[in-house]
Amino acid sequence: MRLEASRLIAAPLDEVWDSLDDPELLARCGPGCKSLERLSEDEFLADLELGVAAVKGRYRALVKLSDKRREEDRCRLHVAISGEGTSGFVNGDGEVFLERQSDGTLVSYRIEAGIGGRLAQVGQRLLSGVGKLLAGQFLAKLEAELGSRRAPSEPQATT
């Protein structure tokens, strides 16, 4: 299943890029992310409760970031996720792009995701929509977190 979308978030590129290095921040943003433990520079172990409404599956997932490229106005990285849990398995492999805009950062992702097991069997027709929903929730929370970090006395770089 392919998850592909773009979203403009109202936060500067540098902050968004740096947030990828902050497991506590990422854990707070990830929908259903109970904990995120850093194993090495680019490897994390996530305890996830993924789902919507009453339907949730608990997964332990290994998240690996790689091929990080940082330029002045654009960044990209490769993310690989592989997890297993009560309702089956979940994995993902893809790219995330960040692009500086005048009013924030355009975050685009193109991820091939695989979900297997009971959840996928029964919920197949809802998966890609829910996947996009969760990704959207993650970005919205990231935006809110980064926004609230900016101390009120600091001049806003944009808007």
Binding site: G51, A54, V55, K56, G57, T86, S87, R118, L119, V122, G123
Partner: peptide, 13 residues
């Protein structure tokens, strides 16, 4: 709708 979710243990209220 709820019983299938319970039968498959996709919901655990």
């Amino acid at each position: 709708s709820l019983m299938p979710l319970l039968n498959f243990r996709l919901a655990r209220p």
